[in-house]
């Protein structure tokens, strides 16, 4: 600190005469201090090394940890790919194939709960006066092309279901303007699901049927009305 450039101008910070002598008196008069110092000098006679090395069991612990870390990363890194989220993923197969088995009912259940249940209710009975039921409704269990058409374009205006007239708007899940743009697969899943739930026992709607109907109505953009549909597909 001797080359300190500042050392020449701080006269205001010199120690005042009063406070500092008692420090030393206190220190020298303190028996505890003397006694402890003696004790320290005794202790210093023991030979000591430059520093105490790491205890051996710690080295083993650290080595074990590093070894575990290597194994863990090798097994759970998903090859460092940005598109692998599943820790069970194994290069070249495993896990993902079995998970990919297609179940339209499982998929339909999920789609229904997220998109349909708010109006048609989880039990498929709808809300009297507002939203028509799906359970045992002929519009659901009847002609499959009619059902797919509703799903792909929606439905506007009054509709009579099992003796009650409802007047609302069903949104479109197809690829027209304002539609949700679901794939053939999802339409197939949701149609199959509602045709086979709540006691409905109609056969499934295949993906091919959905594709065919989609192609057939490609030119149409706006929602259907009930009379229009009944004209194309009269009620059984």
């Amino acid at each position: 600190m001797s080359d300190h450039p500042n050392s020449d101008h701080k006269p205001d910070r010199l120690p005042n005469e009063r406070g500092f002598d008692p420090h030393e008196e206190a220190a020298y008069a303190d028996d505890t201090l003397h006694r402890v110092h003696q004790q320290l000098q005794r202790e210093k006679e023991e030979p000591t090394e430059g520093f105490s090395p790491i205890p051996i069991f710690l080295l083993f612990l650290f080595g074990g940890l590093v070894f575990w870390a290597g194994i863990y990363m090798a097994n759970n890194s998903g090859e460092f790919r940005p598109d692998i989220y599943n820790p069970e993923w194994k290069p070249g197969g495993g896990g993902n194939e079995t998970a990919a088995a297609w179940d339209p009912i499982k998929r339909g259940d999920r789609l229904f709960r997220n998109n349909c249940a708010a109006c048609h209710q989880a039990d498929g009975n709808g809300v009297p006066g507002s939203f028509p039921p799906l359970a045992s409704s002929p519009w659901v269990v009847g002609d499959e092309a009619r059902l797919v058409k509703i799903l792909l374009r929606g439905l506007q205006g009054p509709i009579e279901v099992m003796g009650t007239t409802y007047n609302g708007a069903m949104p479109s899940y197809g690829d027209n303007s304002g539609g949700a743009g679901w794939s053939d697969r999802d339409i197939h899943a949701i149609a199959t699901y509602i045709r086979q739930s709540w006691g409905n026992g109609a056969p499934p709607v295949s993906e091919e049927t959905v594709a065919a109907v989609r192609a057939e109505i490609a030119d149409r953009d706006k929602a259907w009305t009930a009379p229009e549909l009944l004209e194309m597909h009269p009620m059984e």
């Binding site: 870390a69 863990y72 990363m73 998903g78 460092f80 820790p87 993923w89």
Partner: peptide, 15 residues
């Protein structure tokens, strides 16, 4: 999120 990132976080936490 990519699984390697999580695994790295786990390893670092254990370390």
């Amino acid at each position: 999120i990519p699984v390697w990132l999580i695994s790295a976080g786990i390893v670092a936490s254990v370390m």
